[in-house]
């Protein structure tokens, strides 16, 4: 960064002109597709509006209060929270384990990295369809597989509890590769002298993990956990595809926040209500982000 003064000299004027001209289109796009919609979300959330009529009565916080007494919203919030933390619970320990096992470069490392990373780049709809077929109660291979161990076939996508589990399973599968790569970078950045010293002292692999890897990986562990939970709170596509069938009743088995929001907005035309729901989602994300910032600031 050049420490030029912020005075309007002829030289500065030329540079500023370029900076402003270059940034104007970018800023204009930002205003139209980010800033205005974000402000609008807040504004609309205080009104009752059905998308068509000219009347828009001001409601104050009525939408927010109404949501807290709305069964569908509360179920969605509960399901989404269970799913988000379920994904955290499954994906983070597994991806950490894989990363630890992969930390020392081995012959097949590139192959493993590719295989674990494949679900990350796959788009959600085909990935979900592959799982939908595997989880199919009647013809799916999963029921056949658990049959070998004496379990009876389970209605994975029909029973609400199992359906929540299925969403967690498939979402964890999809995110493990991403988390693994971030952990892998973190582990490889730990100076090898720590491990060498530990080996001389006769520390076992497990002791090395508990006393060196885990403490030094804490910030990355937190980062991965927080982004896993944040991204999981937006869960929608999986649920839409898993639960939709020929009868066209998607989302009734597992109701999640974004699904409930879209339904309030576009099926019942309760724009204010849906916007208040969006603000709740934002508040959750902000709290999670703040946890991360506070922790990182305390460290440095």
């Amino acid at each position: 960064m050049q420490k030029t003064s912020l005075k309007l000299t002829p030289l500065n004027r030329r540079r500023w002109l370029f900076a402003y001209l270059a940034l104007t289109p970018v800023l204009a796009i930002y205003i139209f597709i980010r800033i205005i919609p974000i402000i609008q979300t807040f504004r609309i959330s205080f009104y009752k509006w059905d998308l068509i009529s000219k009347r828009k009565p001001f409601l104050g916080f009525a939408n927010y209060i109404g949501l807290l007494q709305d069964r569908a919203f509360l179920i969605s919030l509960t399901n989404t929270t269970i799913i988000a933390f379920g994904i955290l619970f499954f994906s983070v320990p597994i991806s950490l384990l894989i990363a630890v096992l992969l930390s020392k470069p081995r012959k097949l490392s590139p192959l493993y990295e590719t295989m674990y990373f494949l679900p990350v780049v796959t788009s959600m709809v085909p990935a979900t369809l592959a799982w939908k077929w595997i989880l199919d109660a009647q013809y799916g291979p999963l029921n056949q597989f658990i049959g070998y161990f004496g379990f009876s076939p389970q209605p994975w996508l029909v029973n609400p509890k199992l359906a929540v589990f299925s969403v967690i399973l498939l979402s964890s599968w999809k995110i493990i590769g991403y988390n693994m790569i971030i952990f892998l970078v973190g582990i490889r950045n730990i100076p090898s002298m720590y491990y060498e010293a530990a080996e001389i002292d006769g520390a076992s692999i497990l002791q090395q993990f508990w006393n060196i890897t885990l403490p030094l990986l804490k910030p990355i562990l937190l980062f991965v956990s927080v982004i896993t939970v944040i991204s999981s709170y937006n869960v929608y596509t999986q649920v839409y595809v898993l639960a939709s069938d020929a009868q066209g009743s998607p989302g009734y088995v597992v109701r999640v926040l974004v699904y409930d929001m879209i339904e309030n907005g576009f099926r019942y035309f309760r724009m204010g209500y849906a916007s208040a729901e969006a603000v709740y989602l934002l508040i959750i994300v902000l709290i999670l982000t703040m946890i991360q910032f506070t922790f990182l600031r305390n460290r440095s």
Binding site: Y30, F32, I33, R34, I35, I36, P37, I38, Q40, T41, I44, L51, I230, Y233, N234, Y236, V258, M261, G265, M271, A274, S275, A278, V279, L281, L282, V285, L286, T289
Partner: peptide, 21 residues
């Protein structure tokens, strides 16, 4: 700061007004 602040907001939060625009 504007770019940083809007980066935190998930797309799902503001997609309804975006649809209206």
């Amino acid at each position: 700061m504007i770019i940083l602040a809007t980066a935190i907001v998930p797309f799902e939060v503001y997609m309804l007004p975006l649809y209206l625009s």
